[in-house]
Simulated assay, not measured.
Amino acid sequence: MAIASFKPPTEIVTTAPTLWPQNPTLDNYRHVAETVPLARVMLNSVIVTGVGSIVKVVLAITTAYALVFIDFRFKNIVFLAVLVALMVPAEAALLPNYMTISSLGGRNTLWGIILPTLGTAFGTFLLRQHYKTLPKDLMEAAALDGAGHWKRLWQIVVPISAPTIATVALVTVVGEWNNFMWPLIITDSAENMTLPVGLNLLQSVEGQTGSYGYLMAGAVLVILPVLIVFAALQRFIVSGLTQGAVK
């Protein structure tokens, strides 16, 4: 895909294909920039992904902590609701979400894209299962030293859970960045589209075989930021896979 994005159409659709481009060109990327308001949709994706991911990770961290370390009524029922949310496909919520956001005036807005996806059953479930493996003696010692729940969460639980949190963050960022169906439904203006939806205009406008290079260039632009995020978080993920349980 990356190599083909630098090939002219005659080198992509040919009976004698080559691995490396014989006449490298940036025309595919230039065409993408001319067809799609690239800077705008890229900025929209950064905002939606950044805000949505931060809120979802923070909600997952705090909700999972409450489900493990705070005693309150109906805690098991709340956790059961989280499990049920994991089982319900996102498509089932499209219509009620659309009606709700439209009634609030959120069509063609970035907050209209962000708001319905802020719940994070997966992150809550994963972090809850991890928190349950943390040594109880550590938390009891912190409580005896006078540390409240807020201090225990951010100064003890979060630092020793960094690899798991990084995994949740990576999955969340990838999901937010690649989210296509909901932004497609709630926006119909190019100024408010995210990158995956904006690049879909390429497939709508270009219907010939000569457009493969443009589509490859667009796909590279979608995937590259995710690869950068993975490269930044991979040391935490590898640490989480190798360090074992906290003793």
Rank of each mutant, 00 (worst) to 15 (best):
L184H: 02
G175K: 00
N97V: 04
L184K: 01
L95R: 04
I223N: 13
G112C: 05
G148P: 01
A93V: 14
P163F: 11
E206D: 15
V205E: 09
I165E: 04
F122I: 11
E176P: 00
S102Q: 03
L215W: 14
V205K: 13
S211A: 09
G175V: 00
P89C: 14
F125R: 01
N192L: 08
V158K: 01
F125D: 07
D137L: 12
I165K: 02
G213I: 06
T164I: 13
I160Q: 02
I114V: 09
G207E: 04
L127P: 05
M87D: 05
L170I: 05
R152N: 12
A90C: 03
I223D: 09
F125I: 06
S204N: 12
L127C: 15
P116S: 08
Q129F: 14
Y212P: 13
A92E: 01
L115Y: 06
W177F: 15
F180R: 00
G123I: 03
L221A: 14
T194C: 08
T100Q: 08
A162F: 12
T167Q: 01
L202S: 15
V222D: 13
I223G: 10
E91W: 05
L138K: 02
L224Q: 06
P89H: 02
R152Y: 07
V157C: 03
F122C: 12
Q129K: 02
Q203D: 11
I185T: 06
I113N: 01
G106Y: 03
M193F: 12
V158L: 07
G148D: 05
T187W: 02
A147Y: 14
L94R: 01
M193E: 07
T124Y: 09
M99C: 11
D145E: 10
T172Q: 05
Q208M: 12
A147K: 07
V222E: 08
G198E: 04
L95C: 07
G175R: 00
D188Q: 03
I160G: 09
L224K: 03
I185H: 06
L94S: 06
L221F: 11
L115P: 02
T209S: 15
L202T: 13
G112K: 00
E206Q: 15
A143W: 07
S102R: 05
I101P: 06
K136C: 11
T187D: 00
P183F: 04
L195N: 06
D188I: 02
Q203L: 13
R107L: 08
V220D: 14
L95K: 05
I186W: 07
L144P: 05
L104N: 09
F125V: 06
P183Y: 02
M181S: 11
